[in-house]
Amino acid sequence: MFPPIPETTSSLSFSQRWAHYVTLGAILSMVLLGIVLRETIRWRLTVYQDARTGIVAPYPANWLLDQSGADYVFRVRDMQALGFKTTIQLSIVPVGTATTERNIADRLAYERSQTLIDYRQLSTESIIVDDVSAEQVTYAYISRDTSPFTEAIPTVVLGTDIVVLTRGQALVITFRSEAGQYQDNYEYFRRFLAGLEY
């Protein structure tokens, strides 16, 4: 089908051979540097600090920080994401002495079922976060853009709430992402949790 490759009429000289090897080495080096640059930029973090609450949290550098909400201390969102904006949010809920993580998780589930469309709790389990017991709730709901001008289709969102009791209050760490991107974006949440101090 293809014409035969012309036979090599002369062997390569030393400089020709090594010029090719060095070029291949340059290609490999540039490819590796590109990967390193990509990982560095993708996982670049900015630190949020709140002296009032004593919270120090790393979050992705290009995400939008929002501290204006009444029901959260701060939240960060990936505004570059198409569709639903991946969100990490931290709230503080005052608790009594007899309150457990499960109580808070159940209350959150009840509140969310009232406010989120088609809310479904997928799992509830006890976990350990930084040697501290916590309650993790995973759920799904439908996110619908309320603007009549965007004609956006509804999106299935997966969310995770982690409830930790500390110093007489409950720390609720929320992660929400479009269902199709959840596994890919979960690394952001994992790094957030790894660097979180409270």
Binding site: S15, Q16, A19, H20, V22, T23, G25, A26, I27, M30
Partner: peptide
């Protein structure tokens, strides 16, 4: 230049990097 034996080892990789 490399094929004609008129270049050393470095011309071809430098030219490649410059083009990129």
């Amino acid at each position: 230049r490399s094929r004609r034996g008129e270049a050393g080892i470095w011309l071809l990789p430098v030219v490649f990097i410059a083009a990129c």
